[in-house]
C-alpha cells in the first residue's frame, strides 16, 4: 500500500489542511511569507503541498518547486524556515494521530525537496 493510501488519501489531506495552515499562519518564524495572498487560494496550495508530502498524486518536478519558491528565496527563505515548515507538518500529523513510521515517511518526502525549495 502506498503512503498516501495508508495515511487516508484525500480525506486525510482535507483533515490536515486546516490544521497545518493554522499552524503556519500562527508561526512567527514563517507567517510573513504568506502575507498579502488570498487565504482561500493559499489553502488550496497548502493542499497541494500536503498531497505531495503524503506521497499522493502530483505532477510537480524539482524544477517546479525551484521556480515556485524562487520569489520567497529572494525574500530570504532559508533552512530555518524550511525546518519550521517541517516541524508544523510533523505536529499536524501527530495531532491527527498518524502513526510515527508514516510521519517519518512523509517527512522524508518533504525533506527531499529542500535543495529545490531553497534554490540551492
Amino acid at each position: 500500500m502506498s503512503l498516501y493510501t495508508e495515511i487516508g488519501g484525500e480525506p486525510a489531506v482535507n483533515a490536515a489542511v486546516d490544521i497545518f495552515y493554522r499552524k503556519v499562519l500562527k508561526d512567527d518564524r514563517i507567517k510573513h511569507f504568506f502575507d498579502g495572498v488570498d487565504m482561500g487560494k493559499q489553502a488550496s496550495k497548502q493542499k497541494a503541498f500536503l498531497t505531495m508530502a503524503f506521497g499522493g498524486p502530483h505532477n510537480y518536478t524539482g524544477e517546479d518547486m525551484r521556480k515556485g519558491h524562487a520569489h520567497l528565496v529572494a525574500k530570504g527563505l532559508n533552512d530555518s524556515h524550511f525546518n519550521a515548515v517541517m516541524e508544523n507538518l510533523g505536529a499536524t500529523l501527530t495531532e491527527l494521530n498518524v502513526p510515527g513510521h508514516l510521519i517519518a515517511q512523509a517527512a522524508a518526502i518533504a525533506e527531499s525537496t529542500r535543495k529545490d525549495v531553497l534554490g540551492k
Binding site: 488550496s44 496550495k45 493542499k47 497541494a48 498531497t51 498524486p57 510537480y60 517546479d64
Partner: peptide
C-alpha cells in the same frame, strides 16, 4: 500548476 486536482489553479 499541480495538474492533479489539488491546487485549483
Amino acid at each position: 500548476s499541480c495538474r492533479s486536482g489539488s491546487c485549483q489553479t
